[in-house]
């Protein structure tokens, strides 16, 4: 029973959207599509909370063991509790007097700047990474370099200064060779994903059981 029930549930759940697609009846669409969509979003939210529980466990464990950097675990737990409490009990957006609710304030002045700065920090590391990637040794690396340079130079005013055709070349690269490669990747990945879906639908693959 431990094995059969999850497999049956997965097969039934996976067939529902397929039925809704092939029988676009109003009743079927409401039950097999809209309602299940809403339900899955709810289950996903619970799954998100599950991840949070794991995060709390890991950090509490670290604090108990006084592991290296345990002080930072306290900061993680305190800021998490604060932000979660603001989100759960404090409301969001602007108050009638124009002031911000704490959740929105934290988002605007803590989360957003930190996120943007963390990602902007990568600009420096991308520069050194590109130096390593673009040390031209073979045809592939040269094409990578040319592709990157054309796009970067073609999208800034410097490109037009070098030659008026540079932006057009960048546009052409995006429109044809890039489209071709992206299309190949999308079709290849989609074929792989579709066949994987069929394997799960017939119970050959069972990712929900922790192993295939």
């Amino acid at each position: 029973m431990k094995r059969q029930i999850p497999i049956m549930l997965a097969i039934i759940a996976s067939v529902c959207p397929v039925i809704a697609f092939f029988f676009p009846d109003r009743w079927i669409n409401e039950w097999f599509n809209q309602r299940l969509d809403a339900w899955m979003v709810i289950i996903a939210s619970f799954a998100l909370l599950l991840g949070i529980v794991s995060m709390i466990q890991v950090n509490i464990h670290k604090i108990r063991r006084r592991a290296r950097g345990w002080g930072f675990s306290i900061i993680i737990l305190v800021t998490f509790t604060l932000m979660a409490a603001f989100g759960l009990f404090g409301g969001q957006g602007e108050r009638a007097d124009g002031s911000l609710y704490p959740f929105t304030w934290m988002f605007q002045f803590v989360f957003s700047p930190l996120q943007a700065t963390m990602f902007s920090l990568l600009a420096f590391y991308v520069a050194s990474a590109s130096y390593r990637a673009f040390r031209v040794r073979n045809v592939e690396a040269t094409l990578l370099l040319i592709g990157a340079l054309i796009i970067m130079v073609g999208r800034i005013p410097l490109g037009t200064l070098i030659h008026p055709l540079v932006p057009d070349i960048a546009e052409w690269v995006m429109k044809f060779p890039n489209t071709a490669a992206q299309r190949g990747i999308i079709i290849g990945a989609a074929l792989g994903a579709a066949s994987m879906s069929v394997r799960v639908m017939v119970g050959i693959e069972r990712p929900y059981m922790g192993k295939s």
Binding site: I52, F80, V110
Partner: peptide, 14 residues
Amino acid sequence: ESVFAGVSFGYYIG
């Protein structure tokens, strides 16, 4: 970094 991690988790919970 720790503040970012904590606030991110809290933000997604909210």
